[in-house]
């Protein structure tokens, strides 16, 4: 349901990314998201980067609305509704590798906390790496890839995942990040015979499974997802190639 929450903590994660904490008693599971709004901005979906009673969203300033969120200070009000969607299905005892790409790293943190999965954080450069300290609190193995090699592995998260999957046998791969990365994870997992769960993104309006504007091949990202299994993703011709714009037109994926 919808609520007004007060900001209890505002932490800078990187030059363009901040985490905002708030207390919200609504029960949420790793991988779920909320719709967030303050006056003057367009309401947007945000994955929860913490899912306990104290919850958080992690916001990368990429447009007017996310910049407006970055102006939030301690004690300011924020409207959240949700939590919505189907999150990650987690099993303790299954060797799990969680992969976060860019801002998508925030969405895998609650899952890492719950089952202590190994983690790959992919970023463009050293300056774009977020939440590696937090990941190290919950996980023994945290690996980083940067496109320019300024930190950790030089290359992308999918290439690093292939290396790690060759060294250790995983039963499950979780991923959230740019769609091109998710597509790469799906391809690598099907080649290697690994199960995976991918957290997807589309333009959303209602967030609650009604309006149908966020569908990928008839599946609602807001309600049937945002986390889909590899098998589901493999049956989506639009995944990785097409998306719907605000008017419902099928256009090329970003």
């Amino acid at each position: 349901m919808s609520d007004f929450v007060k900001i209890l903590g505002a932490t800078r994660e990187s030059h363009d990314t901040m985490t905002f904490e708030f207390r919200w008693d609504e029960k949420a599971s790793p991988g779920q998201f909320v719709m967030v709004w303050v006056p003057g901005m367009e309401e947007v979906p945000m994955s929860l980067s913490r899912t306990n009673r104290i919850k958080s969203i992690t916001v990368k300033a990429i447009g007017d609305d996310t910049r407006r969120l970055h102006e939030l200070r301690l004690g300011d009000s924020l409207r959240v509704r949700g939590p919505y969607g189907r999150g990650f299905s987690l099993k303790k005892g299954v060797e799990t590798l969680a992969i976060g790409g860019g801002a998508g790293t925030a969405a895998i943190m609650p899952a890492v906390k719950e089952i202590g999965a190994d983690v790959i954080i992919g970023a463009r450069t050293e300056a774009d790496v977020i939440m590696d300290d937090l990941a190290s609190k919950y996980s023994k193995n945290v690996w980083i890839s940067t496109d320019d090699g300024s930190r950790g592995f030089r290359g992308n998260a999918v290439q690093l995942m292939r290396e790690k999957a060759a060294e250790k046998s995983y039963g499950m791969v979780l991923a959230c990040g740019p769609e091109v990365m998710l597509r790469g994870v799906l391809g690598a997992c099907s080649e290697l015979g690994l199960d995976c769960q991918l957290s997807m993104e589309r333009h959303m309006k209602c967030g609650a499974g009604l309006c149908g504007c966020c569908v990928i091949d008839g599946q609602r990202v807001c309600k049937d997802g945002p986390v889909f299994t590899g098998e589901q993703a493999a049956r989506m011709p639009e995944f990785g190639s097409k998306r719907r714009d605000e008017a419902g037109r099928l256009v090329g994926a970003r």
């Binding site: 367009e42 309006k205 609650a208 309006c211 504007c213 419902g248």
Partner: peptide, 23 residues
């Protein structure tokens, strides 16, 4: 594109929406 978000919310007993005929 219809109206800008917020376009939808839960209320007691239902929903209120103003999608604005996106199509």
């Amino acid at each position: 594109p219809g109206h800008r978000n917020p376009t939808f919310t839960e209320v007691k007993g239902g929903f209120v929406n103003a999608m604005g005929l996106p199509n």
